[in-house]
């Protein structure tokens, strides 16, 4: 190394990130920024509007407060409906997902074609928003809890089957092989080698999906699929904002309580 080179390296602070990467990051940054500016232009959401919006927060408080919490008694039946819908949907999805998740696990379903078809169907299932499913089922079955439950089942089925099939794929294969080697049939192998390994995760995921279903069933009523959302929708349409805020706060409390319980149970299981 010549003296000049040494001087050069010592004066220039050595860059951890190579120049090419820096250039690329800068370009990506500007693309993201440009697309953001374009998006906010298209959705008419500018910084000034946001500040206006914050200014409107005062207005919001005036409209929504004081929230009317005294209607708890009146809305309890609808709230109970919401919880019951979530419970039924989660149970149904929990049962239905078992065969599906076995089919979507590549260590149980060794048939590549079948495995890929099931995976593909599950992925499609998860892309359809639950509220859209609810709109269609309300048209099919009429207003009530049933279309809401079916929408929740279908939506949570995709999610649950994906989570559980991933758990099944990660299990220890040695017990399975040992059982197959000693002549157990498929059902026996699944029951004695797969179930004990998957059960804690399964319970935890079912509870997690229950949390999601509670949050989803709260809003299903907005499209007529039963539960508390229906009342919330009415109150907003009648401009009864204090009542609406009361309902929103009650929903909030419900979600927080159920999430707290479910998190504690899940921590105890896994």
């Amino acid at each position: 190394m010549t003296e000049k080179e040494i001087k050069k390296t010592s004066t220039q602070s050595p860059s951890v990130i190579p120049l090419k990467a820096k250039f690329r990051v800068t370009v990506i940054f500007f693309i993201v920024l440009a697309f953001y500016l374009f998006s906010s232009f298209k959705t008419e959401s500018s910084i000034t509007e946001f500040i206006d919006g914050i200014g409107n927060m005062g207005e919001l408080f005036q409209k929504f407060f004081p929230p009317n919490l005294s209607l708890f008694q009146a809305i309890w039946p609808a709230l109970a409906d919401t919880i019951q819908m979530a419970i039924i949907a989660t149970t149904a999805a929990g049962i239905l997902c078992i065969p599906l998740s076995l089919l979507a696990a590549n260590n149980v379903t060794t048939n590549k074609i079948l495995y890929n078809i099931v995976r593909f169907l599950l992925n499609i299932l998860r892309t359809i928003p639950d509220l859209v499913l609810a709109v269609i089922f309300v048209a099919l079955f009429g207003i009530g809890a049933l279309p809401g439950i079916i929408a929740l089942v279908i939506f949570s089925l995709g999610l649950l089957a994906k989570l559980i099939s991933e758990t099944i794929e990660a299990i220890d294969m040695n017990p399975l092989e040992a059982m197959q080697a000693s002549g157990a049939n498929t059902i026996q192998t699944i029951y004695y080698a797969v179930v004990p390994q998957v059960l804690p995760q399964f319970t935890s995921f079912v509870l997690y999906v229950f949390e999601i279903n509670i949050r989803a069933s709260v809003v299903l009523g907005l499209v007529g699929a039963g539960g508390i959302g229906q009342i919330l929708d009415q109150q907003i349409k009648f401009y009864e904002y204090p009542n609406a805020m009361g309902i929103i706060i009650i929903i909030f409390a419900l979600v927080v309580i159920i999430e707290y319980i479910s998190t504690k149970v899940r921590e105890a299981i896994v």
């Binding site: 008419e44 509007e49 919006g53 929504f64 509220l131 949050r215 907005l222 919330l232 907003i236 909030f252």
Partner: peptide
């Protein structure tokens, strides 16, 4: 996290009116 997105949307519609900006917020 306890607020469903759609409930937030309802709140923001009351504040900024029924337009995409409420959805963005």
């Amino acid at each position: 996290r306890a607020f469903p997105d759609i409930i937030l949307a309802i709140l923001f519609i009351v504040v900024v009116g029924p337009k995409p900006f409420a959805g963005v917020l």
